[in-house]
């Protein structure tokens, strides 16, 4: 078996103000997996995500230990450009991710930073938009789109970089039920390794066979999503609550 796409070993991190967010996290994600990262607010999920593409690291001003590598390439200053190509992070609020005048310019931003130009850039933009079903909106200003459409374009901005792993922060937040389902269909259709940070436990069960629970800056559970959600003492201990009336035991798994 080749190196895991994502290999996090003993990751610890304290912010410059002394607040420590991670206390030795171990996480391995293999090619083609879809993994949900669950955990209460303040568990260190965002801090972990920001380490995956080297935005936070021991050299970024804080105090850290441990190592992250992506397909065997360690996350360190010299490799940042390649790391950020390999790890695509989609942030929670699409308004943070879309800042150019048109959808085309926004989707082209990432690959253009990688030095891609001309016909290849156009191909990447259109392919990424096709994957999220937004190709017809290519010349529209992003702020004219609905929230769900903007979230999909935000996913496309990262897909255009052709990442090895897609990291999504709360992909289903603020979506209406139809947009939420459309996004699930899109994510399932993508041929890419997926790490999804979410509070939406039914969404995790629907999309991710495996779940990792982060609590208090450490991994407290790692197993099949079904087993994690069905483990009531674990769920209670880490402030994870299923929505009213939702019982994972009554959900028939997708074929």
């Amino acid at each position: 078996m080749n190196a895991p796409v994502l290999d996090v070993r003993g990751l610890a991190y304290a912010y410059p103000d002394g607040h420590q967010a991670l206390f030795g996290v171990d996480l391995h994600v293999h090619r083609g997996e879809r993994v949900a990262l669950l955990g209460p607010n303040g568990a260190g999920k965002t801090t972990l995500v920001l380490h995956l593409n080297g935005i936070l690291s021991a050299d970024s001003g804080g105090h850290g230990a441990g190592a992250v590598s992506v397909s065997g390439l360690p996350v360190e200053k010299a490799n940042l450009a390649e790391i950020r190509r390999r790890v695509g992070v989609v942030f929670q609020d699409p308004d943070d991710q879309l800042f150019m005048g048109t959808v085309r310019a926004d989707v082209a931003f990432g690959p253009a930073n990688l030095g891609i130009r001309g016909a290849e850039l156009d191909r990447r933009v259109m392919h990424a938009l096709d994957q999220v079903g937004m190709a017809e909106f290519v010349d529209r200003p992003p702020h004219h789109l609905s929230f769900g459409q903007r979230r999909r374009v935000a996913v496309a901005t990262v897909l255009a970089m052709e990442p090895e792993i897609l990291v999504l922060d709360e992909p289903s937040s603020n979506l209406d039920p139809a947009s939420r389902r459309e996004l699930a269909d899109i994510l399932r259709s993508l041929d890419v390794t997926l790490l999804m940070v979410t509070h939406d436990l039914p969404y995790a069960l629907e999309l991710c066979p495996r779940s990792v629970v982060l609590s208090g800056g450490a991994v407290v559970a790692d197993g099949s999503t079904y087993d994690v959600l069905a483990d009531e003492p674990l769920m209670r201990a880490h402030r994870l609550e299923l929505p009213f009336g939702f019982d994972p035991r009554n959900v028939t798994p997708r074929p």
Binding site: I55, R84, D96, Q97, F99, F109, A112, G118, V158
Partner: peptide, 24 residues
């Protein structure tokens, strides 16, 4: 928000210069 935008830009390989995007 500015800071979150900045993070989102860094995550897509921004190095402090806006790339020239042709084909618009």
């Amino acid at each position: 928000r500015g800071e979150r935008v900045h993070l989102a830009m860094l995550s897509r390989g921004y190095t402090g210069r806006m790339p020239r995007i042709e084909g618009r």
